[in-house]
């Protein structure tokens, strides 16, 4: 298949927002909160990053401001959930609905357009890599020539591992999810660690969202198209481990990239092809829960 290499290359770009969102989600998950707001946070990051990039005429500044907005939203989510003791599922749902409505409202208010908004002052994302590196057979074709977001996400993944497994902060986050009373009986406050995890979710979702819109140079309503939800699946499929996230996110990126290429190449109705990543999600979830059940049965 002649499109294998370009497909792998594009799978890496596609997986990056998933990887970023699932990293933030990993923190909330480990601290004992199911963060279903990843979708809304990702969308917020996508929208805010591109409009700030447009107004400041700087993609870096725009991305940073986008991240700040997303973190503010996640801080609101965290304080309503933790301080006012609202159900995290309901507050997460509220964030998702808020983000999908608010982005369209703002887009109409600012650009008088409820549909796709194209920003012509935003250049395509610069792709990194030297011609020498790109010459490495196969690997060069796949791993070189991505935007800075992609390489940054790999660095963050390493950082994520370090924080969770090599710092007191990470141990306390995990203890919060595993046995919060163990922390509180020693005078620490589990909710502080949950709050921090929500902020981290906001940060990574802001970054992941920025990649979605800046890569396209345009904002499309509901551009995340369920990526936040898939990121949740990635967390469980990746067995709540940083390296697992990388593998799971790559598999989903591949499924998505395949559906993009298959549309032109294979004689299958395009609606069905577009549904491939979602069908794959379902199958992966069923498969992993069967596996987990079997494993649990053996252990007990």
């Amino acid at each position: 298949m002649q499109f294998t290499i370009p497909m792998l290359h594009s799978a890496i770009t596609i997986m990056t927002p998933l990887l970023l969102a699932s990293m933030g989600g990993l923190f909330t998950e480990l601290s004992g909160m199911l963060n279903i707001a990843l979708e809304g946070l990702l969308l917020m990051g996508a929208f805010c990053s591109i409009i700030f990039s447009y107004y400041t005429a700087s993609m870096i500044l725009g991305t940073l401001l986008g991240i700040v907005c997303t973190m503010i939203l996640s801080a609101i989510l965290a304080s309503v959930t933790l301080n006012l003791k609202a159900n995290v599922f309901i507050t997460g749902l509220a964030v998702n609905l808020f983000a999908s409505g608010m982005t369209v409202v703002l887009s109409f208010a600012l650009f008088a357009n409820k549909g796709v908004v194209v920003f012509d002052n935003i250049p395509p994302l610069p792709l990194l890599g030297t011609p020498e590196l790109a010459k490495i057979p196969i690997l060069g074709d796949i791993f070189i020539g991505h935007s800075a977001f992609v390489y940054l996400s790999w660095l963050l993944l390493a950082l994520c591992y370090f924080v969770l497994y090599r710092t007191p902060f990470g141990f306390r986050i995990r203890a919060t999810g595993l046995h919060p009373e163990a922390l509180s009986s020693l005078g620490m406050r589990p909710n502080r660690y949950r709050f921090a995890s929500f902020l981290i979710s906001g940060f990574t979702c802001g970054l992941g969202g920025a990649l979605l819109t800046l890569n396209l140079g345009a904002f499309v309503p509901n551009i995340t198209a369920g990526k936040g939800w898939i990121a949740l699946v990635v967390i469980f499929l990746g067995n709540k481990k940083p390296i697992g996230l990388l593998i799971a996110a790559f598999i989903f990126g591949l499924a998505d990239a395949f559906s993009n290429y298959a549309q032109g190449a294979l004689n299958i109705p395009s609606d069905f092809i577009l549904a491939i990543p979602y069908i794959f999600t379902l199958l992966a979830m069923i498969g992993s829960s069967i596996y987990a059940n079997k494993k649990g049965a053996i252990e007990s």
């Binding site: 990470g170 203890a175 046995h179 009373e181 020693l186």
Partner: peptide, 30 residues
């Protein structure tokens, strides 16, 4: 010492004991 143990089962003895007052290196690392 409470009647019900306040321990994180997936951590080691040391990690449970020092929780909250962990020894550090380079300022941030555990």
């Amino acid at each position: 010492v409470h009647q019900h143990f306040m321990l994180v089962e997936d951590f080691t003895v040391a990690q449970n004991v020092v929780m909250g007052i962990e020894p550090r290196k380079y300022g941030i690392a555990y």
